[in-house]
């Protein structure tokens, strides 16, 4: 899957979970976003697993802090 498609997919899922638009190219980091709390984070993980068919480990799930982190993880799984 091209990186642009992964970025679009992650932002679409994040938008559905947060209930607000998540524009392309806007850097998003859960440490600086009050809406992206632990509940939403678990929902996002569930939805991404649903969409990609991947399963993330506990360490991976906990370590994901930003859109870029998530895109990088999914890309690395694709490349593996």
């Amino acid at each position: 899957m091209p990186e642009g498609d992964i970025d679009t997919l992650v932002r679409e899922c994040l938008s559905l979970v947060l209930g607000r638009p998540v524009d392309a190219d806007t850097p998003l980091d859960r440490r600086h976003d009050a809406d992206w709390d632990s509940l939403r984070h678990v929902e996002l993980i569930f939805m991404l697993e649903d969409r990609t068919g991947m399963r993330f480990t506990e360490a991976e799930s906990t370590g994901l802090q930003s859109v870029d982190d998530i895109v990088a993880l999914i890309r690395s799984r694709h490349e593996a």
Binding site: S38, L39, H41, V42, I45, D50, E58, T62
Partner: peptide, 17 residues
């Protein structure tokens, strides 16, 4: 799903939810 216990204090899996 034990991952969620660590992440958010709930042991329920996505399927259970």
């Amino acid at each position: 799903d034990e991952r969620n216990l660590a992440l958010a204090g709930s042991p329920l899996s996505n399927a259970a939810c």
